[in-house]
Design a protein around this nucleic acid. Structure first.
Lengths: 386, 386
DNA sequence: TTGTAGGCGTTATCAC
DNA sequence: GTGATAACGCCTACAA
């Protein structure tokens, strides 16, 4: 029934596969390929307003097969240079952009890694993300960034979305209220590599990137002690975070080393936010026998305490010395400057990303739950008496 | 398809409810019940080590067709409640997560929007992104965030990646060196909605979200004038950015209104970075007849000038008044506090995202190149004399 | 060197 | 209500 588009013969026609739903034919006599265009198909194409040009469009335009076009586009060795040139030119002419969705479906990968952070408000996580981005984009990966707004429920939801997006790997820093880790177990089961950073946990078997919280806290407190402070309070973080635990431990050990008593009244667990820091800071300062120094779990809290003390007319550092943790940009600008522990934020991102890429590219299923600890540094400013 | 487990016949089989999520069958001839346990399913799963469970796994486990499973999972009305329950249960048991890659391929959408920003270093863009994220995630969209590091070449590359990722829409803030806009024309051609924000251009026909740069600058300069300053310099932004142009215009018009001369020596184009601000700021302060006030194009630059003046022993605001633009968090903490123009950063993100979603969901191809201008507010602090 | 055909995981359109 | 089967755009043995 089908006639050759050139000679018009019916008997010399062979079927030759499909091209975009159209039957493709080959005329033995004329030695040409052609497709029988279903009318509705054509209309379809016109109807679809934003038609993205595909490999098949290029193939049709050139009378080639889609496989050849695919090969040409991927610098496959065994393809005629002329063919390749024709394909590449036509691709450019038609504004062809490969459809990563389809590509990734076939490859069952996405070249996307998910980054899940608790918040975006302070400068810390954006900075880490810069580090991540640098490493990732160099390796041809994209990043889907999600923030949980410090809510466990959001974290679980985000985790589901990331899973559905078929990310190739996951970088996580936990919410401060995360105590259940089932939503990460799924990644373990599906063998999707994860790396935890900053806010990590013991429950999941994955590499963890942290800074030396213990040492930082120890240095901070020892610095206060060497400046003559004797009643040093600690505004601690949420107890479930390893980071809080380590900083608390460093605090206690520094006191012990210098034979200062550990008073439970002077240790108070906050939640990393400014508002809580204000409340608990106030509590500490209103104590009958108030501390002469406060080591705060992070800079935003420390800064809040500076403001609080200032409003109460308490002199810093004479009446109250303050040390924070993280070297927030504001620490350098507030008056007096905030003594703090500097951590390599971008470096954390870089190391985390690199570690993740390594385990994505490694053949072995074995995950070693190694903990990489980056160094921190005491930065002395006015708030601790210099 | 299902054979009796005893006689092996196919034609005598009836379905007989569900047992522990498995389809139960009844053989009319043998008069026995049985459930189909899938052997090949198990083998299949073992073969691929990190096999993600698919709709077909569920279908096989239950002796259903993939279409039915698909329908059950999507709350399609015409599906037996029992079937649905069985499917949902089995999905949970097998840790099924839909493959968005495949879903999107068939839907030819990605539910991902791309956000392209010049930098991540200052607090501005992260803050905008928080706003974007809120709106987007509420609408079921993900965000791929890319930063160009102020490089035109990176911007072009990122644009290609985003295109290949088949994003449903694009949010852009231009690099300060972007003067050619061909890479955005492709989006126009492919009818992928775009919205520009903050750093926008005239060349592309798309909605633009900006703040009232003109008014902000005008207010800033008028404020300085009302405080008695007479020689007000302007550390301007890169001339190609609309933002710079508008702020410059506001500056000039305020001077004109108050009959102050516009001196070209006092207008100097910088590039928004701290390092250039330091160089050009120094130039201004070393002028034979130096300015008594500086209006800087952004806060980081203004802050740099405060530091510079401080190091030179110049008194702020007595000898030099300074006003910035953007109300960076540091502005409130530096001594003296920086008078600046507050802009609603998160709001910019929200409006941009909402505008983009609107044009994604609108049927019409017509893009109106509307400019939405958000209000700014003068925040007076010590650096301008209060 | 190029083409064929099957598959990646979904949804949609038919049938039954 | 449910089941085949054809898309979606691409890759890749295996053929030719």
């Amino acid at each position: 029934m089908v006639k050759c588009s050139k000679c018009g013969k019916v008997e010399s026609i062979l079927k030759a596969g499909f091209l975009r739903g159209n039957q493709r034919f080959y005329c033995k006599d004329c030695e040409i390929h052609f497709t029988e265009k279903r009318v509705d198909e054509l209309q379809n194409k016109i109807k679809k307003k934003n038609h993205q040009t595909t490999i098949i469009d290029i193939a049709q335009a050139l009378g080639l097969s889609n496989s050849t076009v695919s090969r040409a586009l991927h610098n496959h060795p065994e393809v005629n240079p002329n063919t390749r040139k024709a394909v590449v030119d036509m691709a450019a002419e038609l504004d062809y952009q490969p459809n990563l969705l389809a590509y990734n479906l076939v490859k069952s990968q996405s070249k996307v890694i998910g980054t899940l952070v608790p918040e975006f408000y302070h400068t810390f996580f954006p900075s880490v993300i810069i580090g991540i981005q640098g490493v990732l984009s160099k390796a041809g990966y994209n990043q889907i960034i999600m923030q949980s707004d410090e809510s466990y429920a959001n974290e679980v939801t985000n985790t589901k979305i990331l899973l559905a997006s078929r990310i190739d790997g996951l970088l996580v820093s936990l919410t401060k209220e995360t105590n259940n880790f089932e939503h990460f177990k799924v990644f373990e089961k599906k063998q999707i590599p994860m790396v935890f950073f900053n806010r990590v946990c013991d429950e999941i078997n994955a590499p963890k990137i942290i800074v030396d919280d213990y040492s930082g806290a120890f240095q901070a407190v020892e610095h206060l002690i060497s400046n003559g402070n004797k009643r040093i309070a600690h505004l601690a973080g949420p107890p479930n975070l390893l980071l809080s635990q380590q900083r608390l431990k460093g605090y206690k050990d520094a006191l012990k080393k210098h034979h200062l008593p550990i008073e439970s009244d002077l240790i108070i667990h906050s939640d990393l936010t400014e508002s809580k820091a204000r409340i608990y800071g106030n509590h500490l300062l209103e104590l009958p026998n108030p501390p002469d120094a406060i080591f705060a779990v992070n800079d935003p809290s420390a800064i809040e305490i500076i403001l609080l003390a200032r409003s109460k007319g308490i002199k810093i550092p004479e009446q109250l010395a303050i040390v924070g943790f993280s070297d927030d940009p504001i620490a350098a600008f507030i008056e007096p400057g905030l003594t703090t522990i500097a951590q390599p934020t971008q470096e954390i991102g870089k190391v985390a990303a690199q570690t993740l890429l390594n385990s994505i590219n490694s053949e072995s299923t074995y995950v070693d739950s190694i903990i990489k600890t980056l160094d921190v540094k005491l930065v002395v400013r006015g708030s601790s008496g210099g």
